[in-house]
């Protein structure tokens, strides 16, 4: 067997990864120090001025704020709902399998389709949401036109889409908790809620950390529903970071500033990913 064999076997994958992931990271750094608009023949070196422009740009801070608000509101809601639902659905009965399947479907359904369907649900005149409100004798809400509610609508849709994933992960975590621990707690006379709070919640903590980090990372990468439903509006209310990156690079054609934003996003997300890696390493502390 030739010494070259393993290198030939890994070469194709490594080539793809090098060309389309690692080289682009290096060129992003390079582009973030240059001024370019796709067209001009030169791309002069401009030092940190793209970063300076970004930090002086209201849109950037607004976008960071909107993204943070999105994460701060949506992540706790997802975790609490998912854990509650998972504790009901963790048993392997037909009914819980049916419900798990139904909840899981949106996570694998096209985000563009979901965005289109919910554009209808929340459309002012013909939508399901206002239809229900009118039927209850309440007034219509301009869900996608009122800056104070549109972000909440997107949070709702994203929660609906991702909840099934959180539930499945929580169920896997809950099923790994040894049954004896519940039995012991019940024997000690623990009431159901107390057992949940004192036994389940602490033991499931590693899964919670994992989902926490995953969903924060996800919040920082949301793009599709924004691009389809709101284009960042109304009045910048949903202009989250990746959407701003797309806008800067491919609408305003400001490659330098777009790349600077990409680098900032990269550093943020790598930081979060490293937290995730540490959490994963410490995950199953209750296994003997």
């Amino acid at each position: 067997m030739s010494k070259l064999t393993p290198y030939l076997l890994v070469a194709p994958l490594i080539a793809f990864i090098a060309i389309f992931t690692y080289v682009p990271i290096v060129s992003s750094v390079d582009l973030s120090f240059r001024s370019w608009n796709f067209m001009s023949p030169e791309m002069p070196f401009v030092g940190f001025s793209n970063y300076a422009r970004l930090f002086a740009w209201d849109d950037f801070w607004d976008s960071l704020k909107v993204t943070t608000i999105f994460a701060v509101i949506s992540v706790p809601i997802r975790l609490v709902l998912a854990l509650a639902i998972a504790s009901y659905l963790k048993r392997e009965t037909l009914s819980s399998r049916v419900l798990r399947g139904a909840m899981f479907l949106p996570t694998i359904t096209s985000t563009v389709s979901i965005a289109v369907v919910f554009s209808w649900v929340f459309s002012t005149d013909y939508g399901l949401a206002n239809g229900l409100l009118t039927a209850m004798g309440l007034g219509k809400v301009p869900w996608l036109q009122d800056p104070s509610v549109t972000l909440l609508v997107l949070i709702f849709i994203n929660t609906w889409k991702q909840l099934g994933y959180d539930v499945i992960i929580y169920i896997a975590g809950l099923q790994a908790v040894p049954q004896e621990l519940y039995d012991a707690a019940a024997m000690d006379g623990g009431r159901r809620f107390q057992v949940f709070r004192r036994v389940t919640v602490p033991l499931i903590m590693p899964t919670t950390y994992f989902l926490l980090v995953i969903s924060v990372i996800e919040a920082f990468q949301i793009f599709t529903i924004i691009n389809v439903m709101t284009r960042g509006g109304p009045a910048g209310a949903t202009d989250m970071l990746v959407h701003l990156l797309y806008r800067t690079g491919f609408v305003l054609f400001d490659i330098g500033t777009g790349s600077a934003l990409a680098i900032i996003l990269f550093v943020l997300l790598i930081g979060l990913a490293l937290v995730k890696a540490r959490v994963l390493g410490a995950k199953v502390h209750y296994e003997a």
Partner: peptide
């Protein structure tokens, strides 16, 4: 090292490659 490079792609957000891949 090569395996590390491979696994690390899981952590790298794809959006950083958007502009450079377009240019490539």
């Amino acid at each position: 090292l090569l395996f590390g490079i491979t696994v690390a792609t899981l952590m790298i957000p794809s959006h950083i490659t958007l502009i450079p891949n377009y240019l490539t």
